[in-house]
Amino acid sequence: MGQAINDIQEELIEEFGLFEDWADKYEYLIDLGKKLAPMSDAYKTEENVIKGCQSRVWLHAEKQGDLVVFQADSEAIIVKGMISMLIRVLSNHTPAEILAADLYFIDQIGMSQHLAQTRSNGLVSMVKQMQHYALAFS
C-alpha cells in the first residue's frame, strides 16, 4: 500500500515550510518541475491536451490494478512543478480516494494563485480532468 493522500499533502506542506522566502519556494517548485518524470511522447496527443490561455498541459491516465496512474507534462516549468505535486498526491490511488481528495496543500504552501488563474494555465482543468478519469475508472 502506498501513502495516504493526506500524508503526502502533509509531507509537501512540511517541505515547503522549510522556505521563508518566496524565491526559495519557487526555486524548489521549479526543481520539482525539472524532475517530473518525462511523459511518453506517445501520450502527448491532441486528445490529451488541456488548453490554457498561455501554456498547454498534457494529461494521460491509466488503471493499473485498482489504482489510477497519471502522467502529465507542460510547456511551462512552474506549471510543471505544480503538476509534479498533483501527480505525487493523486497518482497511484484508487478512484474513490482520488474523488474524495481535498487538495488543501495547495493553499497551505501558498500556491493557490496558480489554480486561481483559470485562463492562463490549464491547472484547474487538469485537476477536474484527473477527477473525471477517476470517475470513469471507478
Partner: peptide, 22 residues
C-alpha cells in the same frame, strides 16, 4: 529555452506587471 508564462509569474512575485502570452 524559457516559457514566457514562467517569466511573467516570477516577475509578478517581484511586483512587476508585464503581459505574457499570445
Amino acid at each position: 529555452g524559457v516559457h514566457p508564462q514562467d517569466i511573467g509569474v516570477l516577475l509578478d512575485k517581484f511586483g512587476i506587471a508585464i503581459r505574457t502570452g499570445h
